[in-house]
């Protein structure tokens, strides 16, 4: 197979605010703006950023739980946005999702066994014997005992529920799992268990992950590559080690500096970033980060910085740290915002 497993091109999602039948223009939330990245088979790509940066919208767009406003999502070269219902159904086998909250993402009336075999039964009929064998196998894969298949979610701990969520995602033997804050609600000791499980599964089954998280410690631990998002756009995308060793975008730098480190001998010099993320309804012109950026120059207030490739294989969108060789033409989005 050639080419990446997942390819995302210029993905954009605007949520209209209200339905303005008579109004000429409706204000929109620019949740995701012109996002491009790819994921290789067996790779972990982490998407980091703070609330409202668009990372969860990307997860929903990848699963096609919401329709994109623009751009393409290609799996093995096929654009899933164009697929009709039946074809999409088949493609969903390739991609599964694990959610943040192991309490609300499991049907409380189904047993553990029913929950994890349900995805398969969407595609084929299983005899009771087959179903039990499948459930037992999946439970063992996620480190739970097969007897657990008769339990209800309410009889399980938070960590066990998240294991069920992962077992359900594994049921269809996907090549890609999208995990949206999959360990954020868990205690650290349980989080370690689940992260180990994900690493094991990747090694044994070659699963690729799009791992969405706000926790930089977790991201640094499991990511091969990291995309940093701010207000709907990727501002930096780099191999994990390079990103954490030397962040280039000032937002990446601030984000890494802001994460608390469990080392009391380390002295924090100053608060890395003042102010808050602006509203995606009316984002700042130019670089969305410029109102909080210590490095901002005049150009940042006017022009959206393009993602510029750097020598070490990363891309960065910053006029100061990664200036494009030549003046870029204002993008389509600029023109929209400009009037």
């Amino acid at each position: 197979m050639t080419g990446p497993l997942l390819k995302v091109e210029n993905l954009t999602k605007h949520y209209p605010l209200g339905s303005g039948i008579f109004k000429k223009s409706i204000p929109v939330i620019r949740a995701v703006e012109d996002v491009t990245f790819s994921v290789e088979a067996g790779e972990t790509l982490c998407i980091v950023g703070e609330s409202g940066c668009g990372k969860s919208t990307i997860a929903r767009l990848l699963m096609r739980l919401v329709e994109p406003t623009g751009g393409r999502v290609l799996i093995d070269g096929t654009d899933i946005a164009g697929l009709k219902k039946d074809a999409l159904h088949a493609w969903r086998r390739r991609m599964q999702m694990v959610f943040q909250d192991p309490y609300s993402s499991l049907n409380p009336r189904l047993t553990a066994g029913q929950i994890i075999t349900e995805p398969v039964e969407n595609f084929e009929r299983l005899s009771r014997k087959q179903r039990n064998a499948l459930a037992a196998d999946l439970l063992q894969k996620v480190g739970m005992s097969p007897e657990m298949m008769h339990r209800l979610p309410s009889e399980l701990s938070g960590g066990q529920r998240q294991r069920l969520g992962i077992a359900r995602a594994l049921a269809l033997k996907p090549s890609l799992i999208i995990a949206d804050e999959a360990v954020s609600a868990l205690d650290v000791s349980v989080q370690a268990q689940i992260l180990n499980l994900l690493l094991d599964l990747q090694q044994q089954m070659g699963i690729a992950f799009v791992f969405i998280s706000h926790d930089l410690g977790v991201v640094e631990h499991i990511a091969h590559r990291v995309a940093v998002m701010y207000l709907g756009r990727i501002v930096e995308l780099a191999p994990s080690e390079a990103l954490f060793a030397k962040p280039v975008h000032p937002y990446t730098e601030a984000l890494i500096a802001a994460a608390p480190v469990p080392d009391p001998t380390r002295v924090r010099l100053e608060v890395p970033l003042e102010g808050e993320m602006p509203s995606p309804i009316n984002p700042p012109k130019g670089c969305a980060f410029h109102p909080r950026c210590p490095l901002a120059i005049e150009r940042c207030r006017i022009e959206v910085p393009p993602l510029v490739p750097m020598a070490d294989g990363r891309v960065v969108a910053c006029h100061v740290r990664a200036p494009a060789e030549r003046q870029m033409q204002p993008t389509h989005v600029d023109l929209q915002l400009g009037h």
């Binding site: 701990s157 960590g159 066990q160 650290v188 000791s189 349980v190 989080q191 370690a192 268990q193 992260l195 180990n196 690493l199 094991d200 410690g217 977790v218 640094e220 631990h221 499991i222 091969h224 994990s240 080690e241 954490f244 469990p262």
Partner: peptide, 21 residues
């Protein structure tokens, strides 16, 4: 303390777990 991911102890390695619940 050991179950908190720490890049100084290596990336993409299994974290020391506290077994059980």
């Amino acid at each position: 303390m050991r179950s908190v991911p720490d890049p100084r102890r290596g990336r993409q390695r299994r974290l020391p777990e506290i077994p059980g619940i």
